[in-house]
Lab assay of single mutants.
Amino acid sequence: MDPFVVLVLCLSCLLLLSIWRQSSGRGKLPPGPTPLPVIGNILQIDIKDVSKSLTNLSKIYGPVFTLYFGLERMVVLHGYEVVKEALIDLGEEFSGRGHFPLAERANRGFGIVFSNGKRWKEIRRFSLMTLRNFGMGKRSIEDRVQEEARCLVEELRKTKASPCDPTFILGCAPCNVICSIIFQKRFDYKDQQFLNLMEKLNENIRIVSTPWIQICNNFPTIIDYFPGTHNKLLKNLAFMESDILEKVKEHQESMDINNPRDFIDCFLIKMEKEKQNQQSEFTIENLVITAADLLGAGTETTSTTLRYALLLLLKHPEVTAKVQEEIERVIGRNRSPCMQDRGHMPYTDAVVHEVQRYIDLIPTSLPHAVTCDVKFRNYLIPKGTTILTSLTSVLHDNKEFPNPEMFDPRHFLDEGGNFKKSNYFMPFSAGKRICVGEGLARMELFLFLTFILQNFNLKSLIDPKDLDTTPVVNGFASVPPFYQLCFIPV
């Protein structure tokens, strides 16, 4: 058959498939802009700032609406009420993970971030239990974070109060905490193996944040037939998995079943207990991918939040002064901060919360999916439909947070200066898919920041009023603009 005829037939089939998918069930789905064949609503979305586009569309179609990214149908949730109703009140029905062709290629359905069903539930339950087990290797997770915080302070001392970009050092600290939990080992910041790991993690975040990856996920045929950065992403992930597998083999040879040292040991012990169960989800494949998931999810998000926190503290020296006064009063100079201190430091706690609220790190979270046909607000959402959640619409709700575009710790303080919780605080998402490392991340943010401010004054290279804190939105995360500062020993 003539190649031209084959091409026309293929394009015609794709067009018909697109029209059929977009028209099927439209009477039951939430409203939304009319999609174009094949490309859907992509032309109506700013790929570099999806969150802003969703906010604009919500003003037209309401808090629940339908979009098509290519052939992929998505239902968008915008605003606290619908997000709570879906992710919390109907948590089980909305607990699936959205379709990610690239991740599915890399992870093969294993791990904790992109798995679904029984596998996801069992691996998540085990990971939560293990991360909360403060007795691994007779050292609590808090001990590990405190140790890394001391190392971080010593690295900052080496800058000798000269101007520096904190990106690298602030990236090393949370990565080392995860390494300590998974591998029972922290690395020197100049260790070549550690630097290679950091390089792969950072490069992957840069790649994932590009519009090209959005295109690959919406048109998965590209993955096999086109060159691009997605190939580098898959190569980096394969490198990390190979490295983790080597460490798993080392653990198998040296493990003491009665004295687990780290996450890998705990997983291997669980595998041993379930070795007679042919349906067990505790396999080497799941261990390797879960460890890679924890490394990827637990490094860049925390380091970016820390980097943004220091920029905001530079911009608002009056806030920094209040935090340091609270540190001096509650902790002093002669001991290290600990998590028990947080309950006695409402202002510092409010500042950490406000940093996370203000920066809105992951504006749309990772997409969910419905696990069955769901009736939601008089609409029928078919099983498997991807759910896109606007966390921006919750964290920047102007009824809950007056002047949401302003950095103001009073958003989390009552009139008496006591810490005030808010149900709208969802930087880790909400419901059954809430970030498994939430507790660890909150511990790291509090301890790293208090250790830094206990030991250093922060000095800006320019007038604080002239510092730009506008986030650089890159399609996946909101990151701070480049800046330098000086760490002046107190």
Rank of each mutant, 00 (worst) to 15 (best):
G296Y: 11
T130Y: 15
T299Y: 13
G117N: 11
H99N: 13
P402S: 13
I327V: 10
L388N: 00
V64R: 01
E85I: 04
L314I: 14
K273E: 14
Q340L: 11
S303R: 09
L445Q: 04
D224S: 13
D463G: 08
Q279S: 15
E400N: 06
P35D: 03
T371A: 07
Q184K: 13
K275W: 07
P166N: 03
P317L: 03
K232A: 09
I141G: 05
S254H: 08
A297H: 08
G332A: 02
Y347V: 05
G228R: 06
L295T: 04
F65K: 00
M255W: 10
F239Y: 12
Q192V: 12
K275E: 10
I207N: 05
T371V: 10
P211M: 11
L294T: 02
H368Q: 04
D397Y: 02
R108E: 06
G384M: 04
P227E: 05
I331Q: 01
F100D: 08
T55P: 04
N258C: 09
E444G: 04
V472Y: 15
E274D: 12
P404G: 07
L152M: 12
T66G: 02
I182P: 01
M198D: 02
F487G: 02
R442G: 13
F168G: 12
L128V: 15
S254K: 10
E272Y: 11
E92P: 09
F267A: 04
R186Q: 07
I284P: 06
M271Q: 07
P382H: 04
R333Y: 13
T34H: 13
K185P: 03
P260H: 03
S180I: 05
P227T: 09
I169V: 13
K273A: 12
A309R: 00
F114N: 09
S115P: 03
V153T: 08
N218V: 15
S127R: 01
F282V: 03
L312M: 12
I213R: 08
R333A: 15
V319A: 09
E444R: 00
P346M: 05
N423Q: 12
S478D: 06
T389E: 00
D341Y: 06
K48I: 03
I39V: 14
R73C: 08
R21G: 11
Q340Y: 15
P211L: 12
